[in-house]
Design a protein around this nucleic acid. Structure first.
Lengths: 203, 203
DNA sequence: ACCTGAACACCGTTCAAGT
DNA sequence: ACCTGAACACCGTTCAAGT
């Protein structure tokens, strides 16, 4: 009796999964015009909903962006994890695979990457659980490298930060001349991985 | 006879050097609230001028930001140059000095740094002359390192990009735990320089 | 519970006008 | 030449109201 499921003659009052739809529409708009040009009004229009609907699910625009950011870090951590597990078992192979995964993620998901790492000292990034997970994967790899004597002894967190900074710099500065969405910076990333591994090895 | 210089009984009609004053006020506001919160109106108010005055000197807000950015790169290149010339003459010392200068600039001039490297794939950074100069200083140092056999042979531009990416990543991610405006990340930067130099040395 | 419309205090930018 | 004021088309966000 309750009119819960209409046979879609008109799009239902509820939107099924509005939060997810808003995040998705937001990502597509960022990809097209950049975060700076993102407006709640346009997201709403794209999803077919009032400009105010977002406020039922997110406290404000910053909160929506935080959700986009966290979803990005989750995907990102998955990509790193997958690259690691698919790679051979030596430290050098794992490092290279993860470096590729990092740079490739930046190239393939520019909108997510832009939100995840948009930089300002004033809105200091609240710590992201998924971001911490991603870093943990890298740090674990470093520790294994130390056990197999591929990496010098020392603070594995510091060593992991160094590696993170390297690949992050490459991604942000788009320094790989052969960096394209589908064939991500092959030569330059390989070059960096090799030099990094050499530096890490020495005691 | 012409009323050109009044004895400052009221602030003169012209502002002396309005463009420089606008850039300066902009920097201070960015430092306080971030680029995102920067408004032409507030800059104008701060300088004591109408919100429209900026349009006499800059074509729009983006153009003012570009001027800020370029000024930042000029200061930045100077800082690198100075660090290089003050350092000892070995490659290792120069590399370390420049790494410090990079990270310290980011820490001491957060507003400039934010504008210089604010990231979006959609407003692809127009090439900056001063930015190119800064990169050139680094690349020259790499070439000298190759001549003194401190750095492996190979494409010096690629090698310089690698170093740039490393220090840039450190600066952006604020990975140095001991990074403060005045005592910039001493231990971590030293750590990175050493590992980097080791990796660069090997053939 | 979930969504909407009108209203408010902001933006950047254009344009005609002042000195 | 350099600056201003009013006006326009946008924002994010609040609030009372609709289903």
């Amino acid at each position: 009796m309750t009119p819960e499921r209409n046979s879609a003659k008109k799009r239902s009052y509820h939107h099924g999964n509005l939060p997810a739809a808003l995040i998705d529409a937001g990502l597509k708009l960022i990809e097209k015009k950049g975060v700076r040009a993102l407006t709640l009004r346009e997201i709403g229009a794209r999803v077919g909903v009032s400009r105010m609907a977002a406020y039922r699910h997110f406290s404000d625009k910053a909160d929506l962006l935080a959700a986009i950011r966290e979803a990005g870090f989750a995907q990102f951590a998955d990509a790193l994890e997958q690259a690691r597990s698919k790679a051979g078992k030596t430290f050098a192979l794992r490092l290279k695979a993860m470096a590729f995964a990092y740079v490739r993620f930046a190239a393939e998901h520019p909108a997510h990457f832009e939100v995840m790492f948009s930089w300002s000292p004033h809105q200091p990034t609240p710590p992201s659980p998924a971001g911490a997970r991603a870093f943990g994967i890298l740090e674990k790899t470093i520790r294994e490298g130390q056990q197999s004597s591929d990496v010098r002894q020392g603070d594995s967190v510091m060593l992991a930060r160094l590696v993170w900074a390297q690949v992050h710099g490459v991604s942000m500065l788009r320094l790989a001349p052969d960096l394209t969405p589908k064939g991500a910076g092959t030569r330059f990333v390989e070059f960096c991985s090799e030099i990094l591994a050499t530096g890490l090895a020495q005691t």
